[in-house]
């Protein structure tokens, strides 16, 4: 196995007195697509916030290409090549669609993604590029959020529930775009409530439960029973 691009060992995360993650371990190989599932409040978003630097953790608890990044700020992590598509999209309301994309490209990393590539992936955004980002439909906003993350040309992209609140047909469109994104060798962590969606796009899956890994397996072979047990904690 090649050296992991992301290596998480004994990750703890806290919100004040409340502990949200307990000694979590997780590895991701370069180019791999990993799915994270788990019920509400399991700690999925907390995990992605920790990786992306929005939460500060013990430095050595998260290693990226061997470098400890657990204690870095989000802007420092971003410049190393990790991008987050946050839960709930979180576009900048004062910025137009195109400005949201441009600011994503601010870290100026070299790579295949550019404004025109993002418009190629999501043509509708080009027509809407001067509109306020808030005037778009939920699905289009999600496309902007994904495009904004791609503009940084990350080596590792983190998706937090990109299908949340979207109509099935829109979800299908967005997932149809995924191979075009990760096919280029980008590594990805996909947090997803829809288990069959999660399994179909990933090679390995982790299930979180109350801040701990309750299951780790190959997406192709993991059994539904094991998942339900890991998901709901039925022993």
């Amino acid at each position: 196995m090649p050296e992991p691009i992301l290596d998480i060992r004994g990750l703890d995360a806290h919100y004040g007195d409340f502990q949200a993650l307990y000694g979590l371990n997780l590895t991701l190989a370069p180019g791999e697509v990993l799915a994270i599932i788990g019920s509400n409040g399991a700690g999925k978003t907390t995990l992605l916030r920790s990786i992306s630097g929005l939460m500060s953790n013990g430095a050595a608890q998260i290693r990226y290409r061997g470098t400890p990044i657990g204690a870095l700020r989000a802007d420092q992590v971003a410049s190393l090549g990790i991008a987050l598509v946050p839960e709930g999209r979180q576009l900048f309301p004062s910025l137009s669609v195109e400005e949201n994309l441009l600011i994503g490209g601010r870290v100026k990393r070299a790579g295949p993604w550019s404004l025109s590539k993002v418009y190629e992936l999501f043509p509708i955004l080009q027509d809407r590029r001067h509109q306020a980002s808030t005037s778009l439909s939920g699905g289009q906003q999600q496309m902007v959020a994904i495009g904004r993350a791609l503009m940084a040309n990350p080596d590792l992209i983190l998706f937090d529930e990109i299908s949340l609140g979207l109509a099935p047909i829109i979800i299908r469109d967005i997932y149809a775009a995924l191979p075009g994104i990760v096919g280029g060798g980008m590594s990805a962590v996909i947090v997803e409530q829809d288990i069959s969606k999660a399994l179909s796009v990933s090679s390995r899956v982790y299930c979180l439960q109350e801040g701990r890994v309750s299951l780790e397996g190959d997406s192709a072979t993991v059994s539904r029973d094991d998942i339900s047990r890991a998901y709901f904690g039925i022993a």
Binding site: D75, F92, S94, R106
Partner: peptide
């Protein structure tokens, strides 16, 4: 300008702006 865009982004949402590589 890019600077103005950064000002507006940080004003909108400091956390997400940090994700864009902006040191607030």
């Amino acid at each position: 300008t890019a600077l103005g865009r950064s000002f507006r982004a940080v004003s909108d949402n400091q956390d997400i702006a940090q994700l864009m590589g902006l040191n607030k």
